[in-house]
């Protein structure tokens, strides 16, 4: 990120309160403007991640989500609106994000992540947030991120539990290190309040902001585990597997001046 884009006066006004963060300032905001992020699925987690990233002024969001808006989406998928029932989710999401922040470029992709499209989509961005409800999609995304050495924020929830970790390929455990096998009993549909999916989404968006700006310490090599029933939160250390078929032979690359390295 050698040549950061300039901010307009309108952008300075829009982002003023976050630019007051002492170690963000105008340079941090310009880093956010220069950044591009892929969000896999715009459900209760990913939609809220995208909303906060657009609000924060991330320059480009590549958004992948198939299907049409259903009534049962509306308890948590905050980018989907009642008037758009039966119509493509990606259109509702794009409209909502544009209403919030017309400065953020939206690249809508009306597909879910698969091994066919993952490399192509990952190649368009600096980093990725995974919020897919199916492990086949999460594994495809993980493999593409490891191949391209792009950071991946893994955000997931179930019921009142939430889990979050930031994967830096070659330096931290990848998804396949943490989950050696596809959880056989996992189902696409799961119990969820929007307030719970939105909680882990907000934290995932914070991780992106930290990775892009270099502020703070990313949640690497650890999994934040939240039990919102008891408000019991802890960080569990997680380890790379030397025999991991996805990242076992990947070495770390030199880091850069941001947390993206």
């Amino acid at each position: 990120m050698s040549e950061l884009p300039e901010l307009s006066d309108e952008e300075r006004s829009r982002y003023a309160w976050q630019m007051w963060t002492p170690d963000i300032g105008e340079e941090g905001q310009r880093r956010l403007k220069a950044a591009s992020v892929l969000v896999s699925r715009l459900g209760g987690v990913g939609g809220t991640v995208a909303y906060y990233l657009a609000a924060a002024g991330v320059g480009k969001l590549v958004l992948a989500h198939a299907g049409n808006v259903k009534p049962s989406d509306l308890n948590r998928q905050l980018l989907m609106t009642t008037n758009w029932l039966g119509n493509p989710r990606i259109e509702s999401a794009t409209r909502r994000l544009k209403e919030l922040n017309p400065h953020t470029e939206i690249v809508p992709v009306a597909e879910n992540i698969s091994s066919e499209n993952a490399d192509r989509l990952v190649s368009q961005v600096d980093l990725v947030v995974d919020a897919a409800p199916l492990f086949s999609e999460r594994y495809a995304m993980n493999e593409a991120c490891v191949r391209s050495r792009k950071p991946l924020v893994e955000s997931a929830m179930y019921d009142f539990s939430a889990q979050l970790t930031t994967i830096i390929p070659g330096r931290t455990p990848c998804l396949s290190c943490i989950y050696p096998d596809d959880p056989a009993n996992w189902k696409r549909e799961f119990p969820v309040f929007g307030a719970v999916s939105g909680t882990v989404a907000s934290l995932a968006a914070v991780e992106v902001i930290k990775l892009v700006t270099g502020v703070g310490t990313p949640l690497t090599g650890q999994m934040l585990w939240m039990n919102l029933r008891e408000m019991d939160n802890r960080k569990l250390p997680i380890e790379r597997r030397s025999d991991c078929p996805v990242c076992g032979s990947v070495d770390a690359e030199p880091s850069t001046d941001s947390n993206l390295g």
Binding site: G44, A131, A132, P133, F135, M157, S161, P183, P237, E239
Partner: peptide, 29 residues
């Protein structure tokens, strides 16, 4: 409060008073 890697589950004998946390990994998005 120390994570026990999966490969060591069979070797790790518990002791009186141990406090275990068993976390189920989740995937909802």
């Amino acid at each position: 409060r120390e994570l026990i890697p999966r490969a060591k589950h069979s070797d790790c004998a518990l002791e009186e008073g141990d406090e275990l946390e068993i976390v189920t990994l989740v995937g909802g998005g």
